[in-house]
Design a protein around this nucleic acid. Structure first.
Lengths: 208, 208, 208, 208
DNA sequence: AATGAATGAGGCTTCATTCAT
DNA sequence: TATGAATGAAGCCTCATTCAT
């Protein structure tokens, strides 16, 4: 029973991981369900016991992978002495960018499939078991409070930053256009500082 | 002769326009070449006389449509009294956003397929015949000069703005997440002003 | 289980036989995979479960059909009193020629697609289940030994005979050119006797 | 006019030669009419002014190429001191085999498409302009007479030799199966001598 | 729960042939 | 004569999905 339950989980995991691997190497469009089950070593029908189709797998993967990046970045941050909301956020961003630079396929995968909706789901994913179900968004809020900061619209600020980072990184990492990621970083972080400034000043007064 | 050449052009146009229409309504993945030729009223083989496959059509369309948006925005700007680099740029962005709000399919189409590479091609497309081959990037440079402005890295500034606008609009227009486009606009334009400031101050000193 | 496996075999057989029938009547070039599956009463995809393309079927068929001819000829021989290597070989050849005269399509099919490589594969095919896996080439060797014959290069002799018979029969049976099969037979068999003589004398001495 | 006529001939020649080149390199099945006209530098419609389809070109080519081989072999023979029917025939065969060994594509092309019918047409082609329209078959007959030889059925003898050589060479040159061409030559020529013997003795008595 | 043989709709692409110029 | 754009039938092959075991 336990073993059975365990076996079930194993198959699902195998499908999940194999799908990710193939999505990374061949792209989603060119990855077939046959490819996935064959590489995972399960029967075709089994796929349909766990997923409805390959886009189902994709969505779950995007969310998971984006969440993992944040989790890792957050853990790294905690291992440093860094304080201050801006520095912390930039530290995490920098960490994620460095990770992505080493995995171009992941950039495409996330960039092409990450909507703010899925993204927010990722932000709400518990960061790690040992953190008592703390998620990234909560920790972001904590960070602000700990540092005595105040932003009128922290979510909008985050949204702005995330979209800016996402779009620019995609181009710089994949195409080195208009400049390489390393060349662009100083400009990017400067722009992010500017966005923090903007939201500290309080946009709410003029937003209506 | 002339007639023959003209007829050829007509067929190509028909395919081009029909493909766009179908990409908008059904999406690229679900649009087949059969769909395109049938709706365009030409034979299947004719498609292959002008395009290598549907992705070929897509790339040409993305570039063309993005270029058209800028051209239209630029023309509208010229019909106003607006001066000043920032105001002009924001006017064009606002114009484009308004256009896109009325054509959600176009948002998806452009957002999913626009890399900075294709984008720059669009920027280099002549704005309009009557403007003597002036393209958007030139006119942007002119604008800066006319207003006695100076930016150390105008292209990087533009890149930053374009990616920011692209990513945020995509979410706001399509998903109203985390807020609607109209709600987000003030924040967006404020951020853009910030980016102008940043580049006016001169980032080049710290960019190495 | 058994039933499943059996069903699988049935489908494959159906495809195999149908393909042969169509190759015979329409020729390979004009036989389409659609034709085959339709006539065999299976789905198109099923074809690809068992064969990679129609040339795959062809190769397997040529080998099989050539093997069958030899097997039948050999069995007929065993039912006679004939002894002697030459007489036995000529008996089998005569039997095969008579068969082929009644199936011109088979002549074309085999003649156009039979290389010595495929042919040798056919010769190595077990003649019949009840013969304990004896194949034609073995039985040819046995025949020689039983009759106390000796040939320095039996394989080369066989090769020469087979190519001679193949080429001449093809023309005589299909085109009656330069004479009919029946007219040519005496010449052919005389030539074959000559080839036996040649190899009995021992060519190996002069072959270098 | 003359020029026009000449131009016409040029186009036809271009198509003819280009087709041959492509048949050799890509095979007939994979050579399209588009390929031919494109490489020949003429319009598609022009092809149909001179040939009915690609098989029309093929037949004309096979006959021409086979004829050329004989013509060249015959000319070479004339440049030697060789006399005697057998030696002469074997000289020509040896010459042709050597030529074919250097052009494997030509082996396939001729072997797959040469029926005795087309072949005889080739044999009847005038050997060379300067020989007063003498063709190979005539010269073969002359050869026999000059040497005071007598064969009851010279055509059948030639047929037997041609088919034997054709089939065996095909395998030996292309697949080196069951041995290489050079290894097989002594056996082949010995067999040919045997065939001459057979027909010298007079088969006619037993052929009815 | 797991299998994997079978399905067949539907996509892509090629290419011989025509015909108006 | 020569052209080459246009045709559209026809072939190949894939692959998501089902279902009997």
């Amino acid at each position: 029973m336990n073993k059975l339950e365990h076996n079930k989980q194993l198959k699902k995991e195998a499908l999940f991981n194999t799908a990710f691997e193939l999505f990374m190497t061949k792209g989603i469009n060119k990855t077939t369900i046959s490819d996935i089950v064959q590489k995972a070593g399960v029967a075709k029908g089994t796929f349909y016991l766990y997923f409805s189709d390959k886009y189902d797998v994709r969505n779950k993967l995007v969310s998971k992978k984006a969440g993992e990046l944040f989790t890792k970045g957050y853990k790294e941050l905690k291992a440093t002495q860094i304080t201050g909301t801006e520095d912390s956020v930039i530290y995490i961003i920098d960490y994620i960018i460095n990770e992505l630079q080493q995995d171009k396929a992941l950039v495409t995968f996330i960039a092409k499939n990450l909507s703010w909706g899925i993204f927010r789901a990722a932000l709400n994913t518990p960061i790690a078991a040992e953190e008592n179900g703390l998620n990234f968004y909560d920790s972001f809020t904590n960070l602000i409070e700990e540092n005595g900061d105040h932003f009128d619209n922290p979510e909008i600020m985050l949204f702005t930053i995330v979209e800016l980072v996402g779009g620019t990184c995609h181009n710089c990492i994949l195409y080195h256009e208009p400049l390489t990621m390393d060349e662009y970083k100083p400009f990017l972080y400067d722009t992010i500082h500017g966005i923090f400034q903007q939201h500290r000043k309080g946009m709410s007064s003029q937003s209506q």
